[in-house]
Amino acid sequence: MQLLSRSLLLSCALLTLSASAAPKRDDGQRFAVIGHSFISGGEEHLKAAIAETSEKSLAFVVVAGIKGVQEGCVDKLYQQRRELIDNARRPMVVLPAASDWTECKNSAGRSNAIERLARLRELFYAEQQSLGEKKIALTRQSMSPRFRSYAENAHWEVGKVLYATINLPSNNNHYLPAAGRNSEYEDRLVANRFWLNRLFAIARSDKVEAIVLFSEGDLKPFSEPTGLRALLRRAPAGHDGFAEPRRQVLALAQKFAGKVLLVDSAGLPKGAKPGIEWRGNVGHLSVGPGALEVRVQTNGEPKFAVKDAAD
Rank of each mutant, 00 (worst) to 15 (best):
D86F: 10
R89L: 10
R110M: 12
P225V: 12
I276E: 02
N87Y: 00
V63F: 00
V93G: 00
L138A: 12
I114Q: 13
Y163H: 09
A59E: 13
R198S: 09
L120N: 06
Q297Y: 05
L189K: 04
L84R: 04
H155C: 13
G159K: 01
L228I: 10
E186K: 10
Q297A: 09
F222E: 06
A13T: 15
W156K: 00
L196S: 04
E122N: 07
R89K: 12
V282F: 07
V249T: 03
K273Q: 15
W278S: 04
F38C: 09
S183N: 14
W278M: 06
S5G: 03
A137E: 07
S215C: 05
L131W: 02
S18D: 15
P289H: 08
S18Y: 15
Q128P: 09
S149R: 13
Q70Y: 10
L285A: 05
L14K: 13
G227N: 11
L162E: 03
V260K: 01
A32R: 02
N172L: 06
F31R: 01
L268A: 11
F147S: 02
D75A: 12
V74C: 03
R90M: 08
L231M: 06
V62P: 00
E277F: 02
F147H: 14
C73K: 01
E103F: 15
N106Q: 03
R119N: 08
I276H: 02
V263G: 00
Y185Q: 09
E216A: 02
Q141Y: 00
L162I: 02
D26I: 02
Y175S: 07
A59Y: 05
D100T: 04
R295S: 08
E293Q: 11
A310T: 12
L9H: 12
A64C: 09
L228Y: 05
Q80G: 07
Q254V: 10
A98C: 08
R119M: 11
Y78H: 11
Q297W: 03
V294N: 00
Y175R: 06
R82W: 12
L123T: 06
S286Q: 13
L250A: 12
D240A: 04
G217P: 07
D86N: 15
H36W: 11
L15C: 14
Q29L: 15
A13F: 15
K24M: 13
L228R: 05
L10C: 09
G35Y: 10
I202C: 01
S111Y: 13
S215Y: 05
Q129V: 03
E186D: 13
P96C: 07
Y78D: 09
R82S: 06
N192D: 15
